[in-house]
């Protein structure tokens, strides 16, 4: 029961973090290139990701022997978890700049507006009116740039979540649970962003990233051991002490690095 809950929690938080980042790009594309293309691009990317998770996830479970799968998947989770944890500790201790959604949004808007300006100038001989911009944003016409930017944003941010859902789900044989956790996060973040009508810069992304890093690393080490038939003390419950150990060490590492900054 504990490991099932942790699988859902890990995929939920990981998906929330990546969805916040994806939403910033979609929001910038929608504001500058029109909402229709941005929404269509996002939905298309989401469907491709669901297809990848469905095909790869189910075939992994059915085709690869469970022990080999657990070792491979555990190794992937360890690599992913440790790199998330490293980034989160460096950010918490002040050695790396925090992920700033507002800044990313402004950059993206500037970039997309610049392309739009250049295109309109070439077409209309430098006549860019505010009415024209407003028309484009609220028009029902498709904009290929808006579509591609939103598609790439959602697809690239979502690919990591897809990997997490596939690896967590297939190693624990709780594929549906892992996918449900991610789906809940996708719906929750989309609802929150739509209701607030802006990018979600207040979400404590770094803390969430640290939690996911700790969970993935602990799961990774646990599954590698399970695949190699190591007898973990406390069986499935050893995930809990692994999480406690990595949490404590992350806290200590952050404190030491903070002190080094002074």
């Amino acid at each position: 029961m504990t490991s099932e809950l942790l699988v859902v929690l890990a995929s939920f938080i990981a998906c929330s973090v990546e969805m916040v980042e994806a939403w910033t790009i979609v929001f910038a594309a929608g504001r500058t290139r029109g909402w229709r293309s941005a929404i269509e691009g996002s939905i298309a990317a989401f469907l491709v990701l669901v297809l990848i998770v469905g095909i790869v996830g189910t075939s992994l479970i059915h085709l690869i022997p469970i022990d080999a799968l657990r070792i491979t998947v555990g190794a992937l989770l360890m690599i992913l978890g440790l790199s998330w944890l490293r980034k989160a500790i460096l950010r918490s201790s002040g050695h790396k700049a925090m992920h700033d959604e507002d800044l990313i949004y402004e950059k993206k808007v500037k970039e997309l507006s610049g392309i739009a300006k250049a295109r309109t100038s070439a077409m209309d001989g430098d006549k860019i009116s505010v009415v024209g911009k407003v028309k484009r944003i609220y028009s029902t016409d498709r904009d290929s740039l808006g579509f591609v930017v939103a598609f790439k944003g959602v697809f690239l941010e979502g690919l990591e979540v897809a990997m997490i859902v596939i690896t967590l789900g297939s190693s624990s044989h709780h594929f549906i649970l892992a996918a449900t956790g991610a789906l809940f996060a996708a719906v929750a973040v989309t609802c929150a962003a739509t209701l607030l009508a802006r990018q979600l810069s207040e979400v404590p992304e770094n803390k969430m990233k640290m939690v996911v890093g700790i969970l993935l690393t602990s799961f990774g080490i646990f599954w590698v051991g399970e695949g190699a038939k190591i007898g973990w003390p406390g069986s499935d419950l050893s995930i809990l002490w692994l999480i406690a150990l990595f949490s404590a060490v992350s806290f200590i590492y952050t404190a030491i690095l903070k002190n080094m900054l002074v």
Partner: peptide, 24 residues
Amino acid sequence: EFFVLTIGIVLLVVMVKTSSLFII
């Protein structure tokens, strides 16, 4: 470094299955 570490750990646990007291 994490890639090298993971490969090392996987090799260790696959090759030395005898004692979890040592491996963990």
